[in-house]
Computed example of a mutant assay.
Amino acid sequence: MPQNINNQAYKESFKRDGYAILPDLYSSEEVLALVNTIESAPTTTPNFRRSQDLFAIRNLLHEIPDLAPLLWTVKLRQLLYSLFNSTPQLVKATYFDKPAKSNWLVAWHQDLMISVDRRQEIPGFGPWTNKQGDVAVQPTREILWKILSQCAFTSTTAMLATGR
């Protein structure tokens, strides 16, 4: 577990600011394993987008299932449990690699959709999308308030931010 991962300062930062920056959430070896797994994956499905300016993978864990245990580490689960006192669930993963020479902006936005296995009409859920077989829906506000987004960078620093 990263040094001082249960440090009260992280919990206070998260509660006060809605995010916490956690150095060394992933070790250098874990980051290397993530990168190697992504780089060795076949890239022939429509969920892979690769150009001079971008490499992106939609529905990441469906495309590269071997990433799940590498992303969803015991350290991360323990941290999330310590913050929320409940068992977290991984609902969506997307990968972006923006090469240094590319010039595109990702403006501030909220990701409100969650990936699901299939469309099922449930009151309060919607709208729905289906992008290259990835079925997604906007859940109810009560569920959205419980969603946490994690941005992991290809260094040993990770940033956690709420979906609020």
Rank of each mutant, 00 (worst) to 15 (best):
I38M: 09
K98R: 10
L105R: 12
M159S: 13
V74C: 00
W145M: 10
F84Y: 14
L148F: 06
L60G: 00
F96P: 06
V31A: 07
S155G: 13
L160Y: 06
L32F: 08
F55P: 01
I38H: 09
Y95M: 15
P88F: 13
R50V: 14
M159G: 13
Y10W: 05
A33I: 04
D134M: 13
Y26P: 03
N6I: 05
R16F: 04
K131W: 07
T73D: 01
P139H: 02
V91D: 07
W72A: 02
H109R: 08
P139I: 03
K146L: 14
K146E: 14
P139Y: 01
T37P: 04
V106D: 00
V35F: 06
T156R: 11
V35W: 04
N4F: 08
L22T: 04
F84Q: 04
T44M: 08
G163R: 14
A33W: 01
T157G: 00
P123F: 03
D53W: 02
R16P: 00
R50E: 13
N7Y: 04
S27D: 04
I122K: 14
Q78Y: 08
P42S: 12
V91G: 05
S51L: 04
W104C: 00
P69N: 05
W128D: 01
D66Y: 03
V135I: 15
K92M: 11
A152P: 02
F48S: 08
A20Y: 02
V35A: 11
D134Q: 14
P127W: 12
T129L: 12
A41F: 01
W72P: 03
S149M: 13
K75C: 11
N47Q: 11
F55E: 10
L32D: 15
G163D: 07
V137F: 06
I5Y: 01
K101I: 09
R77W: 01
R118D: 11
N36G: 06
N59E: 02
D97N: 13
M113T: 08
N36Q: 15
T154S: 12
V31H: 05
M1W: 06
D117N: 07
P65M: 07
L60V: 00
D134E: 14
K11E: 09
D117Q: 06
L71K: 06
M1L: 09
G18C: 06
